[in-house]
């Protein structure tokens, strides 16, 4: 099946859904390819305390369901599957979802980012059996057990703090001697008696057969190795952009993020816009993603108006 749309939005986190709300209110009748992981990273977030308009914490899934509903109210349509392929070399642009082909006058990409892994074979073998990337999902299984978490950013501190609700002790393993996390998250973690820090330390291996028994650590300064007995290892070492569809189609930076023009969501292809974490490795907040989603929808609208104007005058 092939259908022609004014705007196709790929991705359904705060960026994609805000773009959908603006585009739908502007009568652009957007279709959102919301993906298998619909709702994006906030679906894995427990309490969101810093989204404007919510003085009481709102859960990530609840916030995303409200955003989805809001765009739907103005007529946004959803396709709950991943986009498999894109073609930005001809117009209208092509976006494929299984056997369905969408032809779009403008495309907004908001595919976000995903958790980075350490890349150890033992980590992969024990994923779901003691190795986890989702503290809010799996913390429950570690009641009265010792845990380790690797990472030094806001999400690592948030997850470490959350995990102390269950665990006897949470050891934060961080490869540097200071945290990247914001001041408030650091202070919370430092004040928590159940959280310990191992600075300048990396994880060499996850030990265990069928379940996690320990992690092997080494000190990046002295080279000294040690073993830390834990029942679980949580990974929170940052993110990689979801841009597997776009090499050769759009200009990406060295880390794979889509390059956008300054103060704009315009990509290297006119008519293709990018919003949210897929083009932002600096702020990576729900509210900045939503803001750039709004920008993308407004820029797409202007682009489509200019196209229509050009067509009418030639």
């Amino acid at each position: 099946m092939t259908q022609h749309r004014k705007v196709v939005i790929v991705g359904s986190g705060p960026a994609g859904l805000t773009a959908a709300t603006y585009a739908a209110r502007g009568n652009l009748e957007p279709v959102v390819i919301e993906g298998i992981a619909a709702g994006g990273q906030l679906m894995l977030t427990n309490d969101v305390e810093n989204f404007p308009g919510f003085p009481d914490p709102v859960t990530g899934p609840e916030l995303m369901s409200k955003m989805r509903e809001q765009a739907a109210r103005f007529g946004a349509e959803y396709v709950t599957a991943d986009a498999d392929r894109v073609d930005f070399s001809e117009r209208p642009f092509g976006v494929w979802v299984g056997d369905d082909e969408y032809r779009a006058d403008a495309v907004i990409i908001s595919t976000g980012a995903k958790a980075r892994m350490l890349g150890l074979p033992s980590e992969e073998a024990l994923l779901g059996k003691g190795v986890s990337t989702c503290a809010t999902c799996d913390g429950f299984f570690y009641r009265d057990k010792p845990l380790a978490i690797v990472g030094g950013g806001d999400s690592a501190m948030e997850e470490a703090t959350f995990l102390t609700k269950f665990a006897t002790k949470v050891t934060v393993v961080h490869r540097r001697h200071e945290l990247r996390a914001s001041k408030i998250m650091q202070e919370r973690a430092f004040a928590n008696p159940k959280i310990e820090f191992r600075w300048n330390t990396v994880i060499d291996d996850v030990v265990g057969n069928g379940s996690v028994e320990a992690v092997e650590l080494s000190d990046t300064e002295t080279g000294e190795t040690s073993r830390l007995d834990v029942d679980g290892l949580f990974i929170a070492i940052g993110h990689d952009p979801n841009t597997d569809l776009f090499p050769g189609q759009l200009d990406l930076d060295d880390e794979g993020y889509i390059i956008t023009e300054p103060s704009s969501t315009r990509t290297s292809v006119e008519g293709v816009f990018a919003a949210g974490d897929v083009q932002d490795h600096v702020f990576r907040q729900a509210v900045t993603a939503a803001g750039s989603g709004c920008m993308a929808a407004m820029e797409a609208e202007r682009y489509l108006e200019a196209l229509a104007h050009a067509a009418a005058t030639t």
């Binding site: 298998i36 709950t80 299984g98 994923l127 779901g128 986890s132 999902c137 379940s211 679980g232």
Partner: peptide, 30 residues
């Protein structure tokens, strides 16, 4: 030994001794 959710375990008919397949994490239909 389910330590992560969602975990999907598939059991063969009548066999509760061990799962025949283990899938961890959310996935799409395809």
């Amino acid at each position: 030994n389910v330590m992560s959710i969602p975990t999907l375990l598939v059991f063969k008919p009548g066999d509760t001794a061990a799962e025949a397949k283990r899938l961890v994490g959310a996935k799409g239909k395809g």
